[in-house]
Design a protein around this nucleic acid. Structure first.
Lengths: 210, 210, 210, 210
DNA sequence: ACTATCGGGACAGCCCGTTGTT
DNA sequence: AACAACGGGCTGTCCCGATAGT
């Protein structure tokens, strides 16, 4: 498993370029819509080399989504939740980080893993399961923040942290979908605000959305 | 533009079978993942006939998503919002209908238009715009219900009906994505409950999720 | 199943040309050594058309060996064994026909089915089984001639018609192999003579080989 | 030129493993059906090493068939024909040895050289000629036994030793082909018996086949 | 209206062999 | 001696769509 940072350091250069190209192209075009030839062209690498490093297109996709997931790991580490003493404030920190991340140019206001998952879940279980594991890992982080918050302060309205984490995950993925469709990332910001407001309300705090 | 009901009545039989097959296959496999040959095989029609009725694969896709959207129209008509006097209760009626619809077997707990949109928005503007128009139409219905509710009763927390409609749309699409990925439609129900609770709260009503 | 004669009449012309090209090329180069591109080039047909008529290279091979086997059927019918009253003389007639057939230019002094069988029996059971069935069919004809001869005249040395038919089959196939290797079809004639002499001897007749 | 025995002693170990793997794989799959990568994988050697020891796939094939031919040399030496005083009995000794050899598990009831020859004779003259030389060498041994027998005892029916040697060679190769096809080595035993009976008859001896 | 035939081009995957480094 | 990295080219397969005929 490689983090995006590791792509250029721990991998042979060409291999790293291939993974980067795969991420870039599959974000736009999905798995089936991206051809090996395209990846090679973008990475300026021959197909012979491609199949030296990867057994199949599916394999590079596995590597690509691992790299993508490791991108999160970096973001979440940089968020330094431990440095925030109040468990409830940590949740706000999470939304802060998401806002900051998704304000970047369109290419990042999207999730490779969700994109792939929506395309292949019904037809390629290996890839689908991999996506599920990674995305559930992400939801697990959210869930943990919620559990800690519940422990620190009993919510006004009781809730299942798993459900709410799934709610946030779904909302984020759906926001990417709609943003891509409308070609306008605004909806992501709005939706994050509403989600944050909803969580606040669960804890009895009043926070106006937006 | 054809409703699903119209498929068998107003279209030649073979054409209708082709559209049904296209819907069925593209729901699982997406646009690119579904070949004309597959559609023909499933519809028991020759490829010659296919290109007699449709100029291209893209065209049948346009017809298919129109048919899908008309399916909604039927559902929303059947919901008979006008028969519900209280505008706030109409919103509950909407969630009721969605719950009922998405409780059916997996094949329906999904949205053809969202599936296609997420796949082609970045590469096929014509299809992408079509999806956007239809999905925004759906969101428009939600928006109208919210506007009416606001008019009937000032919300406790002010909100932009457009934003909240987009929020619901995103959540529904994201729920489909996650449900497909996890192969478990449960998340849809949970998320609808949370969304409903959120809207209730905007109007100052207290409704426990689930 | 198509006879070679039928190739040009009952099949679409291009399909027939493809089968003929496949036979011609695979006789020289075997199954793996012959590419679809080569077949198309020789038949002056595009690859698109090839895959309109045949699902795979393997399928055209099945058709090709069927066509080849039907070539025998024609030869054996032309031999008119029924017109030869003496069952023992029928065996001589068989060898006559084989001699005549294998005296033709090199391309025919070989057996497509044996060539394919030796190449794929260990790796492609479908093709292997098909070859076996056809070749065993051929051996069955020999066997029947031997059975009839035994019934007409008790042999001097008893023998199992199945074994001797297998012996003749093996010898013919081995002769083709050696002839191809030596680039000299002479060995086929010699070996047929020895085989014929051996059969004669079983029936107590003395016939000098050659 | 290496005997199989020499493979492990006179060659670097890795080179020997490569040759053994090549023999093993090509026996089943032929020359074209066996890839360099497969050979390397089976021999647990990297491709870099392969091309350090062999210039090309063709070269390792030459070495492999030489090794195979040297296997015979060992067998024929072990047969110790000189120790059998009667030249006619030596021929029986030959069939004895063949019977014994081909009774082993299927992997040996086959001839690498014949397999390769039938595949490449028409397309690769270098390999084809090499196979021919080796196989004709084998036939030469048979021929010599026949010449000696003729010298010791005039045959009842005169014959050309070259022809009969070619007959035996063809029969053996054809038997391998049919045995492989039928996945049943029995035919080899039967055919050897018939061949032996035929030779006996040439010398006026009566020996029932089987 | 409906279909068989056919074509150009792209696809993923694998091939054999070279290069340069350790 | 051994090997990782790499490349150019080909393979079988499939795709979408056009054409000509019934």
């Amino acid at each position: 498993m490689y983090s995006i940072a590791e792509i250029s350091t721990e991998m042979p250069e060409k291999k790293g370029r291939l993974v980067e190209a795969a991420i870039h192209l599959m974000l736009r075009q999905g798995f089936g819509g991206t051809s090996v030839d395209q990846i090679c062209a973008e990475a300026q690498v021959t197909k012979g080399s491609f199949f030296h490093y990867f057994e199949s297109k599916e394999e590079i996709c596995h590597v690509a989504i691992d790299a993508w997931a490791n991108g999160w790991v970096g973001l979440l580490q940089a968020a330094q939740f431990e440095a925030v003493p109040d468990p409830l404030a940590r949740i706000d920190r999470l939304f802060e980080v998401m806002h900051a991340t998704y304000l970047r140019p369109e290419s990042v206001a999207s999730c490779l893993i969700g994109t792939i998952a929506s395309e292949v879940s019904a037809t390629n279980r290996r890839l689908g399961d991999h996506c599920e594991k990674l995305l559930d890992g992400w939801a697990g982080v959210v869930r943990r923040l919620l559990v800690d918050a519940k422990a620190a302060q009993p919510p006004e309205i009781d809730f299942d942290p798993d459900q709410v984490a799934g709610f946030v995950l779904s909302l984020v993925q759906g926001s990417f979908l709609v943003a891509k469709m409308r070609q306008d990332p605004q909806v992501i910001q709005h939706n994050l605000n509403h989600a944050q407001a909803y969580v606040h309300r669960l804890f009895g705090r009043s926070r106006p959305p937006g």
